[in-house]
């Protein structure tokens, strides 16, 4: 419980929100959907800065990027027609893989990234699509997903910084994708997330971006697996080789649900199937 929480602030602009955060130093927290904060225990927090009213629930395109505002609820992303076709609908499927409509209505894109639990839905998909995180603060920072998601120093943003937007390169729009989640039950946290994007050029794999989540502390790219595919006319044995390479040497997160060995075996199977489905029709469903 946030027992010392005394006030809420409802800034209308990013500048206003940053000013409030600066004023409170480390005693304020940003809130958007709030689904994780309600259960947080932090005696330092005295104020909440609600960033859900600052016009950050946008979805637009410019010449180089698909731009997605950080306070978009996962449900809006899951239902977006634009995201439903961009890169084979990868981002929409990732958002829809959060199993409860009630939570999808509240959880935001930014929350999924910043909290970045091992089972968070969006980071694997954003890493797959080479997204960039836009951070507002004293200076605006643009941080690649690979750095932001993979590095603990960005896990908690600076105390007076806000993740405002995610930009996905438009050149990813024509890639095929696959996204699969393996969990004990539909509502249980994911044990494995396989998120992949493949580019086809006249029957040959011209590009591959392969990401594992759930099984690792943070979503990770698997360059060794990508090398098994690029430049080849893909057949089932290539998917099997890539899947084996993807799980090779990874640091597995283990809890009471399943052993390391079980997770590795499942991850390899899920990855192989996801790659095969992605290449064949790009319609491998989440969960």
């Amino acid at each position: 419980m946030l027992r010392n929480l005394k006030e809420f602030h409802y800034p209308a602009t990013v500048a206003e929100a940053l000013a409030i955060l600066q004023r409170f130093d480390s005693r304020a927290s940003v809130i958007a959907g709030g689904t994780s904060l309600g259960r947080t225990d932090d005696a330092k927090i005295e104020a909440m800065v609600d960033i859900s009213r600052m016009g950050l629930a946008f979805l637009k395109e410019d010449k180089v990027s698909l731009r997605i505002g950080s306070t978009n609820p996962l449900q809006a992303l899951a239902r977006s027609r634009k995201l439903g076709v961009f890169a084979g609908g990868l981002l929409a499927r990732a958002a829809a893989s959060q199993p409860s409509r009630l939570l999808r209505n509240a959880m935001t894109l930014g929350g999924s990234i910043v909290l970045s639990t091992p089972w968070a839905e969006m980071p694997p998909a954003l890493l797959t699509l080479d997204a960039k995180m836009i951070i507002a603060g004293e200076i605006e920072k643009i941080i690649p997903a690979e750095e932001f998601i993979g590095d603990s120093k960005y896990r908690v943003l600076g105390r007076s910084e806000i993740l405002t937007e995610v930009r996905v390169p438009r050149e990813m729009a024509s890639w095929r994708s696959g996204y699969s989640v393996f969990a004990r039950t539909r509502t249980d946290p994911a044990m494995v997330i396989a998120s992949v994007a493949l580019l086809e050029d006249r029957g040959t794999c011209a590009g591959a971006r392969i990401v594992l989540g759930g099984i690792t502390r943070r979503a990770i790219r698997c360059p060794a697996a990508e090398k098994k595919l690029v430049g080849k006319k893909l057949a089932p044995q290539h998917f099997a080789q890539a899947a084996r390479a993807a799980v090779g040497g990874i640091e597995v997160v283990v809890d009471w649900r399943a052993s390391r060995e079980y997770r590795l075996q499942v991850a390899e199977v899920v990855m192989r199937r996801t790659l095969a489905a992605c290449w064949s029709d790009g319609k491998e469903g989440a969960r």
């Binding site: 709030g34 904060l37 309600g38 609820p73 449900q75």
Partner: peptide
């Protein structure tokens, strides 16, 4: 815990779990 949905109410027309939603929101 936001798992069962029996606490659901609508906020601005969207159903949410009120058990993990601050009143201040």
């Amino acid at each position: 815990n936001g798992d069962c949905g029996s606490c659901a109410v609508q906020v601005d027309g969207k159903s949410i779990c009120s058990c993990i939603y601050f009143a201040g929101q």
